[in-house]
Simulated assay, not measured.
Amino acid sequence: MDMNNSEDDKLFKFARQDTKVEHYEGASLSFGRMVLLRFFHNKGAVISLALIIAVALFAFITPHISQFSPNAVEPAASNLNPGQAGHWFGTDNLGRDIFTRVAKGTSISLEVAFVAMAIDLVIGTTYGMISGYFGGKIDILMQRFTEVLSTIPMIIVVTLLVLVMRPGMTSIIVAMMIMGWINMSRIVRAQVLKVKNEEYILAAQSIGVPTIKIIFSEILPNTIGQIVTTFMFSIPNAIFLEAFLAFVGLGVPAPLASLGTMINDGYTQAVVYPYMVCFPVLFLAIIMLGFNIMADGLRDAIDAE
């Protein structure tokens, strides 16, 4: 028996594992920093962000440093081609510098869109959280109201506001405020319904934490990703809506010009002077494409596992 055991010891050896397990000892990254790292690894999103920043700087700085006023009429310099007499984008039929007007029009479009969507962000987030958290009859009544409101076309709301108010930035912003928050409220409500039955929410309720504190301290931080993403996607939609309203004559009044009014002024002469409509359309396309690509990158960074 002893001989067999000695032979077994020679044939079989206990495996030794010398692998050393290394543990990460560096600083842990917060969720926000992880999102930023993922976002900046997306080349398309970074390029879009840089492009949007460049367009915004062009829009808000150029009217103040240009030698030409965006609203100054010079009949002697009408219909100049791009590059003539220092007019980089040419002039329109009233002799106004298109380069400066495109910059000013872009700034107006961005202002209208950001102000309207910022207000919609507050209204939609608050409405959606109340509806989703309390549920029951409150949720039913609030959702029926949004369904009725969403059936009204935006163009009707804007037309009625123009009849009551003066055409301009205020009427467009108010129209966007009335209709623009609905999609945000629905997305926030869906996120609240998903989160409110989690254990940490039930635990907070069981120990008597006030409802307002639960909503803003526990639920809101866990829905912020979807809120930010929805907000980013809403901005290009608002810019396009403002341009469309201006194009059909419901935008800012003359002599002010947004991108939509410039497109409206230039398309009638597009065959003879195509540059009058090409430059506003180009900047509108750059803004919308840039925001959409950046919003896609932000969504991927937030939703990445």
Rank of each mutant, 00 (worst) to 15 (best):
N4S: 13
D9F: 13
K13M: 14
Q17H: 11
E22T: 10
G26D: 08
R33C: 08
L36G: 12
F40K: 15
G44M: 11
A45L: 07
V46D: 11
S48K: 03
F58N: 10
P63R: 02
I65S: 07
A72D: 09
L80F: 09
P82C: 08
G86L: 02
T91G: 06
T91V: 06
T91Q: 05
D92I: 00
N93A: 14
N93L: 13
I98H: 01
T100N: 01
S109R: 06
A113W: 01
F114D: 07
V115Y: 08
A116Q: 06
T126N: 09
S131T: 04
Y133V: 05
G136L: 03
I140E: 15
M142Y: 04
E147S: 09
I156G: 12
V158N: 08
T159S: 13
L161W: 00
G168I: 05
M169Y: 07
I172A: 01
I173D: 05
A175H: 00
G180R: 02
I187T: 08
K196N: 01
Y200T: 01
I201M: 02
A203M: 06
G208W: 07
T211E: 09
N222F: 04
T230G: 08
M232L: 15
F233I: 04
A238W: 02
A238V: 10
I239Q: 00
L241C: 10
F244T: 14
F247D: 00
V252A: 03
L256I: 00
A257L: 04
Q269S: 14
V272D: 14
Y273F: 13
P274L: 12
L282K: 05
L284N: 02
G290A: 06
F291K: 03
A295S: 09
L298S: 05
R299E: 12
D300K: 06
